[in-house]
Nucleic acid binder design. Structure first.
Lengths: 190, 190
DNA sequence: TTTTCGACCAATACCGCTTTTCGGTCGAAA
DNA sequence: TTTCGACCGAAAAGCGGTATTGGTCGAAAA
């Protein structure tokens, strides 16, 4: 039962990656799972529902990957660096895999963003926690943790944007670390 | 001759702002300038050409505004703050004025960006110069001015992005200054 | 020589229409 | 509990013909 559901998700993910969300029909999915279309509806109540589930699972894997990357480092600074570089690298891989979906990106952008909302919310929490940790350990000097983590999020969004625009020969690790140098040290002379 | 050309640009700007680029026809422009359509083509070789010229002049005004804002301040930090807050405020105003064009934004996004390329290039130069000034005056501590100015640009892009997404009740000055606090001071404890 | 414009062209948008496709439902059968 | 064929309404796609639109050209003003 659950494995059938899982199978549908995996097939759907493949098809979405290959043809994009719009061009993939429920028939396509059903056929490839060797089911009637109606049977697929026994497991999912809509096409959007399948998509949401695909994204959700991807996000879960992504988050686990981020946690692992953060956990093998020790200082707060290294943790944040690990978080950001891993995030950017993963995003670059993703944009290759989902090349078709990237073209549709602008279209159902809002929809994807809504599904991703949980991810972003969580990201903010993680960043805030890492900041607080650094403050406690006296390696960071931040008084408004909420605002600063928001600004860091925005700066990362900027990185993400230039990743999408400059596309090729973009080194996400180098780029991330340069941004992080700025974020950690600032430019003021003290 | 040049005033005729200028007149076409101004009329076109009005129409673009009101109806957007696609909905504005060459006939519309010609009629409002009291000319035959062919005559407009005597002054401009294409519709795109007119659009480019409109953007170019807007950009020039924008740049002058930025220069003025920077010039009435004295310290390098204040100059950068003036630059960024003015930039963001102006952008917000622009997005209201060109509300129709904003809807089309996604469509000929790449086209607009290409026209704006000069602006971004110039922005990088200005930021670099302001950074160098600050380094000389010993208020900034930056060794790779090129990289840092690039990163500041990217962070600003992030701000711009959140301006477009969050749209209403967005306070560009507050947002800018919070980002600038981060950029100037960093988060590392020293 | 500079400027204006009517006539014209090809590509594309638009229109009313019909047909097809697609997401989704339902009831029956396995 | 699970599968599926038959079916539905809405939206998309196709289509032939017409109108619009960006752009050209050569002739006539100025």
């Amino acid at each position: 039962m659950d494995d059938k559901k899982q199978r549908i998700i995996e097939i759907a993910e493949q098809l979405f990656a290959q043809y994009g969300f719009l061009k993939t029909t429920m028939e396509d999915i059903a056929k490839k799972v060797h089911m009637g279309k109606s049977s697929v509806y026994y497991y999912f109540k809509s096409k959007d529902d399948i998509f949401v589930e695909v994204i959700r699972q991807d996000t879960l894997v992504f988050q686990k990957k981020l946690i692992d990357a953060v956990n093998i480092t020790s200082t707060p600074e290294d943790k944040i660096r690990a978080y950001v570089t891993t995030r950017m690298t993963h995003l670059q891989d993703l944009s290759k895999f989902y090349s078709t979906l990237t073209d549709e990106y602008l279209d159902h952008y809002l929809f994807v963003e809504e599904v991703r909302k949980d991810f972003y919310d969580n990201e903010n929490i993680v960043l805030k926690k890492l900041l607080e940790e650094g403050v406690k350990q006296n390696s960071f000097d931040v008084d408004d943790v909420v605002t600063i983590s928001r600004m860091i999020s925005i700066a990362i969004k900027g990185l993400e944007f230039s990743l999408f625009v400059e596309a090729k020969d973009y080194d996400p690790v180098k780029e991330s670390n340069e941004m992080l140098d700025l974020i950690f040290n600032g430019i003021a002379n003290r």
